[in-house]
């Protein structure tokens, strides 16, 4: 379960987030919508620890993680631009988190093969990010995030770069990933159809405030 308590964030005298409070139960697929620039990305960055809130708390399964470093939170984050590591092959991207934790190479390889198979990217393991299509990049970014075995997955408009046909496929993939890995997901989108297809909880942000729909 993730709980946000009275989160606020100000910059240069402007209030971006204002007393944001919400509880998202474990296993929920929460969709977050709102106009551009309303603070959705800022909220995700605060939850995963890339920004410190001006005030308020972030609790994960009842534990206050507000001042923990991002690496200590167990949260997977897939930003809008996917941010694949330049110069690393798909195999290295997916194996990045387990290798960092000192998992033996044989286990890392097995995990990479299993995730690649689940995401249908086994044939891309030796490719560099520059040689991947938008849909392939999105799958690699998801596999890379899941390799760290997160409790919570934050997705910032992950399907925005995909065309209509691929988007339907990606929606099905996200649904299956959430169920297979028993994840809590917070997914930012501008698409009502995407929200309707995936969301079990619908949140709307406007003028720095968050409402449950």
């Amino acid at each position: 379960m993730i709980q946000l308590e009275q989160l606020s964030w100000q910059t240069s005298g402007r209030t971006i987030l204002q007393q944001v409070s919400v509880s998202i139960p474990s296993g929920t697929y929460a969709m977050l919508m709102g106009p551009t620039g309303c603070g959705k990305t800022t909220l995700l960055e605060i939850i995963c620890g890339l920004r410190q809130p001006s005030s308020g708390r972030v609790l994960l399964d009842g534990k206050d993680v507000t001042f923990l470093e991002p690496r200590e939170r167990g949260i997977g984050y897939v930003p809008q631009d996917l941010a694949l590591f330049p110069g690393l092959r798909v195999r290295e991207q997916i194996g990045f988190a387990p290798r960092l934790r000192g998992v033996p190479q044989a286990e890392v390889d097995a995990q990479v093969v299993q995730l690649a198979s689940q995401f249908g990217i086994s044939h891309l393991l030796d490719r560099l990010p520059d040689l991947l299509s938008g849909g392939e990049k999105q799958r690699v970014a998801l596999a890379r995030a899941l390799a760290a075995r997160p409790r919570l997955l934050l997705l910032d408009e992950p399907l925005s770069a995909l065309d209509e046909g691929m988007r339907a496929e990606a929606v099905a993939l996200l649904q299956s990933v959430q169920q297979v890995h028993s994840l809590t997901v917070l997914h930012v989108t501008h698409s009502s159809s995407e929200a309707a297809a995936l969301g079990t909880l619908h949140l709307r942000m406007a003028a720095g405030r968050l409402e449950v729909e």
Partner: peptide, 19 residues
Amino acid sequence: HLPARPEDVALTLGCTRFQ
């Protein structure tokens, strides 16, 4: 000229800032 975002993602994947 290099985007900082991949480093941010690396932090969430378990890296320290130095890593």
